[in-house]
Design a protein around this nucleic acid. Structure first.
Lengths: 344, 344
DNA sequence: CACCCCCTCTTGATCGTTCCAACCGCGTGT
DNA sequence: ACACGCGGTTGGAACGATCAAGAGGGGGTG
């Protein structure tokens, strides 16, 4: 036996091998694995021993073919943009992988053409390579969400369906407005009254949502907002320029930003002007990126509970695949504030 | 027909459906896809039309079962450590996904128990869920590489087999010593003569390799190294302490570091002491992390050519799966230096 | 004209698993 | 004593693709 395995790839045992060793039929072995309650305890034990002895694992391809399920979840993996501080995905994907494992799923990554967003999805659906998708970039006006829904492809979104509040698919998201409100209250609590907002352009729904957390809190506390907001591209340079402009024209003592990238831009301006973050001017970012964690002095930032998002997403996936009719209720999760030197 | 598809999931067409529509047998359709040269051109066209009309894609599970190949590549996905600036994986994984797509493969992510490293691999191998693995964390004394080799599981490593120079598996790696040498020459070229090294503990093979790039270059230029090196944990705090110690005792005017995390630690000390990076003291990191890119002033850093690594890894995978006997020759790739404010 | 061969296409079997319906032994109710 | 239900088991048929081998027809050759 050892001699036959010395050369060439090891050929894994099959259900039939286990059945023969245990002295039962294939179906009994199958039941032992998928429906153990049907077996007498002594038979079950005998089968389990045989399974353990051979190191048997059911062949995925055969099982997939028969059950019409792959136990794979597809996810399009877009790279983090260089030169920004947005690195959510690594954290999220890891949590997702962990959660999926607990649920008996694996994560399949794929890339799509940049011009044809649906290409990757389409191919995987038609070849029945995955059971469902996790869609993460719903902020792009999500053409793929609409496409998936139209084609009755199961998927769960990380991100709200902004354009269609009662879309038929399950989703989980983080309450950006609540996070920014938390950040704003934090700096107000430290005595700041002129709190500026550096956010994204108006066409970003997420950006407007986050901004509302700032403006609502300011209004609530009776503080001014006019002239204290900037809406720019999500780059270091834009954040830097916006901060310079705001400092000159509106004299804020604190900045709340839509992203860590913008916040890092603000830090650049303070750095250039010899202002000390946290002492002269408070700065809060959003995402708790690695840059926020390691920048000298530290950047206070709103941290998304990506682990919880992953839990919700996988729960929704399981529900959706088990009972396709039932729609999992959406979940909106609350982020937390990580306080560091830039806004102590 | 439309009525039958209105409710419930759409059932994809099979080979038989295409065959019927094209008026040929199943096998002919199969040949049209896998071996088109065997068909007469007019038949081929007829089949291709039918394929296009039905939107046919071969069922993965069935194909996998029959061909005993899944066209999936497994990769263990470990999360980036919080509080450090090491975020290589996201970039590498994306490149890998792109390359795999070109080669007709997909990437399957999985997580393993922290105590039993081989658990995830074992399960996937025995269930024939993946054709091969990409192993990335070979620096941990790689128990999984040894295990995989022993069990004749195909895999390609990103990282050299440090402990076993002529290991039987293909690999690609980045020449860390060359990268550090490049960094060291850069600061020497700018007039620095007392160049310090902040690296990892001695038990790290990668760390010692990178260190050799510094020490060899210094020796080559006839510059002193004694008292100018520190070997510490890969954390911000350790880098910060090491920099303080070195500044007090050896008075270096430049720091070359084994990682961006350590380099950020050095920046912390400079920041505390009112020293300006790039003007008073030069600092070079390793990895070109997001933190290096966005920190005020910018951190000069050695950038790993992860895209090229991915190309090599996938090429090795293809060769290995096509001709298991032949061993793909290892490749050692040269990194580049990204110059920013900390060492202009 | 018969023979052979090559090119093209078809038929039957197979991969390893799960689903289906039938089967068997056994105890129970009538 | 016979039918019946029930827990436990059995062989056979699917799932959808590929592999192996064979069938049919046209053209070249002796």
């Amino acid at each position: 036996m050892a001699a036959t395995q010395r050369r060439g790839p090891v050929v894994p045992p099959t259900l039939a091998d286990v059945a023969e060793l245990a002295g039962v039929s294939r179906q009994t072995v199958s039941n032992a694995l998928n429906n153990p309650a049907l077996l007498r305890t002594d038979t079950l034990e005998r089968v389990q021993e045989a399974v353990a002895e051979l190191g048997y694992q059911p062949n995925r391809a055969a099982r997939n073919l028969r059950t019409r399920a792959s136990h794979l979840v597809g996810m399009r993996f877009a790279p983090a943009q260089e030169g920004t501080a947005n690195a959510l995905m690594e954290r999220f994907v890891h949590s997702l992988v962990e959660e999926c494992r607990a649920a008996g799923y694996h994560v399949l990554l794929f890339a799509a053409d940049h011009d044809d967003i649906t290409s990757g999805y389409d191919e995987l659906v038609r070849s029945t390579a995955v059971d469902a998708f996790v869609v993460t970039d719903t902020y792009l006006g999500n053409p793929q969400a609409a496409w998936l829904e139209q084609n009755r492809v199961p998927f769960v979104a990380f991100g709200r369906p902004w354009d269609d509040p009662d879309a038929g698919h399950p989703w989980a998201d983080v309450d950006g407005a609540a996070g920014v409100a938390m950040a704003t209250r934090h700096v107000i609590g430290r005595g700041h009254t002129r709190v500026a907002w550096v956010g994204w352009r108006k066409d970003s729904r997420i950006g407007e949502d986050r901004r509302s957390g700032w403006s609502a809190t300011m209004r609530e506390r009776g503080l001014p907002t006019t002239g204290l907001a900037a809406r720019v591209e999500d780059t270091i340079a834009s954040g830097k320029e916006a901060a310079a402009m705001l400092l000159d024209e509106a004299h804020p003592s604190a900045f709340v930003c839509a992203s860590d990238t913008l916040a890092m831009g603000v830090l650049h301006t303070l750095h250039d002007r010899g202002l000390v973050p946290g002492r002269d001017v408070a700065v809060v970012g959003f995402d708790d990126s690695q840059a926020a964690q390691v920048v000298p002095g530290g950047l206070t930032s709103v941290r998304q509970p990506l682990e919880e998002v992953a839990v919700e997403v996988v729960a929704a996936l399981q529900g959706m695949l088990a009972r396709p009719r039932l729609v999992h209720p959406p979940r909106l999760l609350t982020p937390s504030l990580v306080v560091r030197g830039s806004a102590p």
